[in-house]
Design a protein around this nucleic acid. Structure first.
Lengths: 102, 102
DNA sequence: ATAATATATGAGCATATACTCATATAACCA
DNA sequence: TGGTTATATGAGTATATGCTCATATATTAT
């Protein structure tokens, strides 16, 4: 690996990078994001699919929403969530594949 | 994004993936790995470069070592650490660049 | 063997995290 | 308006995490 990859990191970058990975560091959030690879789901649909409580899903979605990793649209009383960050989703996808095949 | 990216994740994969990202979810570990992009460093050199306590560095290196993200070699009383996982290092590098330029 | 240097580790503490229950808020419909 | 369904949120609790100090271990040189 060449030297050009070393950069002294400023506080802000460090925080953003660590926060991004923190989003991916929890099994529940990974399962949610992994489900959203597929298509959009409502909060209750996510809860049912993954056998989680509605409040658990809602709390985690807020976390992912704050980091702009998911977006949502309202339809009646339901809110449908979908992924919203290609880069992070790719990173997750690659790492899952890496884990599955190694 | 196509449907082919959805896979129901087993416990083991989920654990491995979340652990991997957990390694990257802490500012101190990011700084250490980012330093090791460059070249190998001894424990004390890392501590000096990053203004961290020796024990802090040693604890974090143990964490990274357990996940096989770093390797080491002894030279006298010093132990030199270097990175040992191209995939994870690439993911970190890409995400740092992404954060720096967005 | 003893001293000096480098690294590893255990315990303690403060903070962060993730889940759950209960309840609030919001949209829709009769 | 009142009732129903869906989602969000606050508080409480248990566990996890990261740092620090003190000390143990290991290697080298005298």
């Amino acid at each position: 690996m060449d030297d050009s990859r070393y950069t002294d990191l400023d506080e802000e970058t460090l925080f953003l990078v660590s926060q991004t990975f923190k989003a991916l560091a929890d099994p529940t959030r990974i399962r949610i994001l992994n489900l959203l690879f597929n298509r959009e789901y409502s909060v209750n649909e996510i809860a049912e699919q993954l056998h989680l409580r509605q409040s658990t899903v809602s709390h985690q979605l807020r976390f992912l929403k704050n980091l702009r990793l998911v977006k949502f649209r309202r339809e009646g009383t339901s809110i449908y969530y979908s992924h919203d960050d290609e880069h992070v989703l790719n990173v997750l996808h690659e790492t899952i594949q890496h884990a599955l095949h190694h």
